[in-house]
């Protein structure tokens, strides 16, 4: 190929990639614009702090759904973070690599790709019915934990794998045990990656509708959850519910609720980015 035609290929390829980037950003911008323009009118403090109403879109608010989402997220975090990090440490640092651990690894990766509705069915069968938890926040959080655990485990393992072996060797060389080495050196060095994975996974949990719809979180709940056994609803479900009403006014307040959900998610993602950057500044390898 002549130099000229090679250069042409380069320019062409750059164009294609640039188009792909612009397309992705453009769709996001249009989406956000749509939501903001339809939702901003109804978004005020009263909307956030009021219970929903089936009669009047005017009076309706998202307080129980917002609190339900926050409860769900917090409880999911409490359950999935220790289990996820623990499993990642075990698989990456403690166990010997053999056929069994390889099978477990492959299956965890596969679980990350299982449709969320399947986890919903599982949650309904096990937590709601078998363990008689009912349609509680706890049952919802356990189901969500199942859903996001594979994501947390996989990302935490990647973060642990990225910690250079020289640090482990240095610690072992000083007579440190495996656990001391992991706790004092490997884990702190892996924090940015682990935290990023956790927050992205939790964001997914907050945005999921199917599993909590499946376990039967009710969409008309007048109060915020009072404890882990309270019945609850969550923002995505409230939005879905309002959209299904025939009246146009309810569609508009659904837009406002989407806006709240979006703000929640974007806040979480920016926290993830901040944490990662802060920790990465102290790291040199």
């Amino acid at each position: 190929m002549s130099l000229k035609s090679r250069k042409m290929v380069g320019i062409g390829a750059t164009g294609v990639f640039m188009f792909a980037t612009i397309l992705a950003v453009l769709i996001l911008v249009i989406l956000i614009f749509e939501i903001v323009s339809s939702g901003y009118k109804d978004l005020d403090w009263k909307f956030i702090t009021s219970p929903p109403s089936v009669l009047s879109a005017e009076k309706a608010g998202i307080w129980p759904a917002l609190m339900g989402s926050i409860w769900l997220m917090a409880l999911t975090a409490v359950i999935s973070i220790p289990v996820g990090i623990g499993a990642a440490i075990y698989l990456e640092e403690l166990t010997v690599k053999n056929k069994l651990t390889r099978i477990i690894e492959v299956n965890i990766s596969n679980l990350a790709g299982v449709p969320s509705i399947v986890y919903g069915i599982l949650g309904l069968g096990i937590f709601v019915r078998q363990f008689h938890m009912g349609r509680s926040v706890l049952a919802g959080a356990l189901t969500m934990s199942l859903l996001i655990l594979p994501v947390i485990i996989v990302s935490a393992r990647e973060a642990l794998k990225a910690v250079p072996d020289s640090i482990r060797q240095a610690a072992y060389g000083l007579g440190a045990t495996k656990i001391q080495t992991i706790w004092h050196h490997v884990l702190p060095a892996a924090v940015p990656g682990i935290v990023t994975g956790i927050i992205l996974a939790l964001s997914r949990a907050v945005g999921e509708t199917a599993p909590i719809a499946m376990i039967g979180a009710l969409s008309y709940i007048h109060d915020a959850p009072k404890g882990v056994m309270s019945s609850f609803t969550a923002l995505p479900l409230q939005i879905y519910n309002w959209i299904s009403y025939p009246q146009k006014e309810f569609h508009e307040i659904a837009g406002a609720a989407i806006l709240v959900l979006l703000i929640l998610l974007l806040t979480m993602n920016s926290i993830a980015i901040t944490i990662r950057q802060r920790f990465e500044r102290n790291r040199q390898w």
């Binding site: 020289s166 060797q169 240095a170 610690a171 060389g173 045990t177 004092h184 050196h185 102290n282 790291r283």
Partner: peptide, 24 residues
């Protein structure tokens, strides 16, 4: 004890690099 090919101090303070082995 052991010293490695590539210097591998812990990403911690100079003091901690020396004191850690003692404290554990």
């Amino acid at each position: 004890g052991m010293v490695f090919q590539k210097p591998n101090p812990f990403p911690k303070t100079i003091f901690k690099n020396v004191s850690w082995g003692l404290s554990i």
